[in-house]
């Protein structure tokens, strides 16, 4: 396969970036999207051009490090992570536009690499259950109905990739945040801090400069882990409850 790539190049956070066009040849369907970029980088290296910076680590769809806007879709045309997208989803001669996540809360560091520290700070604001090491009760002292555990799990599979923010026309991070609130809020262990959690996480979310959600739903379609829409509703519900309880 021969492809034309249009890639956002930006030397560092302070510089202005621009789209550049590259050709890659001898791409096979077995390659992952990132391996295709490895091939491009090897070519650039030979030519003495700075390779394209992009993030990845596990390359098996679980760490959430990778993430590119591919032809206008977060993580590309399949419901999966960029690292698990394979080139057989493309055709010979295709032109592929590759951009970084666009969100002012995720500033570009270089080329296609962005800073998602805002997600950590949202978790710091309350995305945890306060339990010190060693002070935990015996695991079987609190049974958790299987359904609750399942719903908590479905939400807990979020990998923190940021595709939801990238895809949302408002640049909102409520799918990510709702996933955490649902994960912890569905479990008995998460109840004592439930009100505080949602209030401080939402405040941090807004403080980071993410947009407000108007329930458009692009985030759900982009999410590689298929985090369900419910989590946003759950977040709103919890927020109203917390406000009713006087927060």
């Amino acid at each position: 396969m021969k492809l034309t790539l249009k890639i956002w190049r930006q030397p560092d956070a302070a510089s202005k970036g621009a789209m550049h066009t590259y050709e890659v040849d001898e791409v096979t369907g077995d390659m992952s999207f990132l391996e295709m970029l490895d091939v491009l980088n090897e070519q650039l290296n030979v030519k003495g051009e700075d390779p394209v910076a992009f993030d990845s680590d596990c390359r098996e769809g679980i760490c959430g490090t990778c993430g590119l806007m591919i032809n206008g879709q977060a993580h590309g045309p399949e419901v999966t992570t960029t690292c698990q997208l394979h080139m057989r989803s493309f055709n010979d001669g295709d032109e592929i536009v590759i951009e970084p996540w666009r969100s002012d809360a995720f500033p570009v560091i270089k080329d296609l690499v962005v800073d998602r520290g805002a997600f950590d700070r949202i978790i710091q604001a309350g995305g945890f259950i306060s339990v010190n090491t060693g002070s935990a009760p015996e695991a079987h002292s609190v049974p958790v109905p299987r359904e609750d555990a399942t719903r908590a799990f479905d939400a807990a599979t979020c990998i923190g990739c940021g595709a939801c923010v990238a895809a949302c026309p408002n640049g909102s991070a409520v799918l990510f945040m709702g996933a955490k609130i649902t994960h912890l809020g569905e479990l008995p262990q998460g109840q004592p801090e439930r009100d505080d959690r949602v209030v401080s996480m939402v405040a941090q979310h807004d403080h980071e400069g993410f947009g407000g959600c108007t329930n458009i739903g692009e985030c759900v379609a982009a999410c590689p882990k298929e985090i369900p829409f419910d989590v946003i509703s759950r977040l709103n519900w919890d927020l109203h409850q917390a406000m009713r309880h006087g927060h």
Binding site: K6, W8, M19, M69, N71, G72, Q73, V97, E99, R102, S103, D104, A105, A167, P169, N170, G171, S172, D206, G209, F210, G211, G212, T214, N215, I216, G217, E218, V220, A221, A222
Partner: peptide
């Protein structure tokens, strides 16, 4: 809300597709 979303993404995508959202939304 409008203002917040405008500030949340000041650099626009060169290419952006809509997959799941309605025109109304």
């Amino acid at each position: 809300l409008w203002h917040r979303s405008a500030k949340a993404r000041t650099t626009k995508y060169v290419m952006k597709k809509n997959l799941a959202s309605s025109l109304s939304s």
